Amino acid sequence: MNEVYINRIGKFLPNDPISNDEMEDYLGKINDRESKGRRIVLRNNGIETRYYALTKQGKPTHTNVELTANAIRNLLDDEFSGDQIELISCGTSSPDYLMPSHAVMVHGELKNGQSEVNSASGNCCAGMNALKFGYLSVKSGNTSNAVCTGSERMSSWMLADHFNKEVENLKELEEQPIISFNKDFLRWMLSDGAGAFLLQNKPKGKLPLKIEWIEGYSYAHELEVCMYAGSEKQADGSLKSFSDYPSEEWLNQSIFAVKQDTKLLDKYILDKGVESTKHALAKHDITPDDVDYILPHVSSHYFVDGLYERLVKAGLEFTREKWFLNLKTVGNVGAGSVYLMLEELVNSGKLKKGQHIYLCVPESARFTYSYAYLTVC
């Protein structure tokens, strides 16, 4: 089996950073009213700026495919060109199309020559699943390199226009013309962007990162759905697909809106994160003392102190100077967040040979967790 190294990291963030006060200029106001939940959500999540692939008129400036392809292009130069890519493995929770898959569309955009492609669907763990596919391909010798990506373009899903029909329907029914908090909540949480890793079977470049292992855990057998889109949650916790609704209900109920059960999120996301972390570290005989930097993907700074405290209670104290996050300035880019965190850490000048980095990615959709352990070479 080959060793696998992250030799290059690229990113692409669209347009200029957007402040909290500018968000509704881009996303619009539902029913021409300011959101009552916006300030509460933003106060808790601690995000100060984020990026949207939109103009102030709500017009798209980039597709998810273009964001991803641009991040990959930022890996390439005369020493490693697009026609040398043997595998493109892409993860996202916001593909531009139901079909074809995201990865084949990225391949088509790049026009880099023959490549194997893989698309990882899901939510935040989709980027890690794409990474694991590339890691296993290089490790097994199936390919000598792989380009892995995590990306999101959620802003176009959050535009006010997508919710106005539901509000109009509520007015006709003489009900309160306000969309539910589980839909409004996520309008102030999610951001756009893409990151890309070049994986190779030999270390190259100034500061290659050896992937020691990648682990994943799902709790779908225990817990019901927490975050979903293209469906509605039923009283028994099951999901009813958009394809089983009359098409007029797609607009009347904002079926395609991204929704989150915040009560389930608060109840389980940290505890299952600690449980799965214990499993991953014990499997590989690793302790927090073996970690120099922990990169936790969190959707909100609201969870940071709670996660730290629960880890300490479980006997897993990653001291606070080891924590590296960029949520405040980049926002929550879902499947792309861990790529963007690692890119920023690598370019910070803080890393030294022999140090170890622990990547932690939770996914609230049905409570899935992914972890990776890296060595700086």
Rank of each mutant, 00 (worst) to 15 (best):
L251D: 15
I88S: 06
S254W: 03
K233F: 05
I211F: 02
Y302C: 04
W213M: 11
H297W: 01
R8H: 00
G58N: 05
E166F: 04
K259G: 10
K350L: 13
H279Q: 13
T329G: 08
N142D: 05
K111L: 09
N145C: 10
Y52I: 05
G141A: 00
R320I: 04
G37S: 07
G46A: 09
Y369E: 02
P362F: 12
A280S: 15
E275I: 08
F197R: 01
L170A: 03
G141K: 01
M23T: 12
V338E: 08
Q57F: 08
V298F: 10
G37T: 05
R310V: 03
Y5L: 13
L170I: 02
A220G: 15
V41K: 06
A103K: 05
I255V: 03
V333Q: 00
P95N: 01
E248N: 09
L209F: 02
E172R: 01
P17C: 12
M189Q: 12
N201K: 15
Y268D: 14
Y308H: 08
G195E: 03
G336W: 07
P203F: 00
L186H: 02
S241L: 14
C148G: 11
L351A: 01
V346Q: 14
L239F: 03
R153C: 06
T329S: 15
D96A: 10
N118F: 15
C148P: 05
L307H: 08
K328A: 14
W323Y: 10
P100Q: 04
E172Q: 00
S93K: 07
E343L: 04
N129I: 06
S254A: 15
N164R: 11
P60Y: 03
N64A: 08
D236P: 06
R43L: 09
E152R: 10
G10S: 04
Q234N: 11
Y97K: 04
E168P: 03
S231C: 15
N44P: 00
K283S: 00
A314N: 01
S300M: 05
L251N: 14
P17H: 11
